[in-house]
Amino acid sequence: MSHHIVEAADLEYSYPDGTPALKGVSFRIEHGESVGIVGANGAGKSTLLMHLNGCLLAGKGTVRVGDFPVTGQTLPQVRRSVGTVFQDPDDQLFMPTVEEDVAFGPLNMHLPPAEVESRVSASLESVNALHLRKRPPYKLSGGEKRAAAIATALSMSPDILVMDEPTSGLDPRARRKLIGLLAGFMHTKIIASHDLDMIYALCGRTIVLHEGRVAADGPTASILANHDLLAGCGLELPLSLQGCPVCANIKKAE
């Protein structure tokens, strides 16, 4: 069984207006890995993630999720394996209440009502949002919306969790809570983000995208400490690796 493996081989994609977004991306992510996808704006991160759940199909090359190549025919199987958390939770929370949103995926899988109910409760509990179940999504705070959006993906019991900018728009405490929450998930995780400190905290491996190509792929600790590599790809060192600005000023003064 290879149902937790994600593999892209020479993946290329251009948008309908002809703008190339991915130019031969290749990687293989094994079961249980946490992988960060980083890159400057327009590097192709979100486009790549959209290929992993079949919202976009490869123009050239292949994407495989577990035992299935991602094609029009295999979408139901692929989407059952891959839970996606989109960048803006308002795009993901479209039902009148949180519980109906979380139940949306399981109901579409035609599960029995008791199973749907148990998945809704378990998913909301795992993101500490059980108290939000009867609330309308537009009434939630940014952090609560994010938790609810993650619960909508978890309720489908995915093998692989794909997240696009999960910490964007969160205040520091909500961000810290979310990092703690994600660290507890045992899924294969693929996280695209500009929040390099979050990637540093959560992902053992990082793939750097630059202008639609893989610029680097390796252990997070060495990639995110490589100033020249990051600068060449329009990125900066994570704040946690930049040193204390107060101490630096003291040193300068001395």
């Binding site: 959209m50 919202c55 059952r80 996606t84 989109f86 795009d91 479209f94 579409n108 899988m109």
Partner: peptide, 22 residues
């Protein structure tokens, strides 16, 4: 734009043309 993104989110969770109800 939002409609397109929401549609993607719905497809990712098995949307088949109807909103199921609890």
């Amino acid at each position: 734009d939002r409609g397109s993104r929401t549609h993607s989110a719905m497809l990712a969770r098995g949307f088949d043309g109807s909103l199921p109800s609890l």
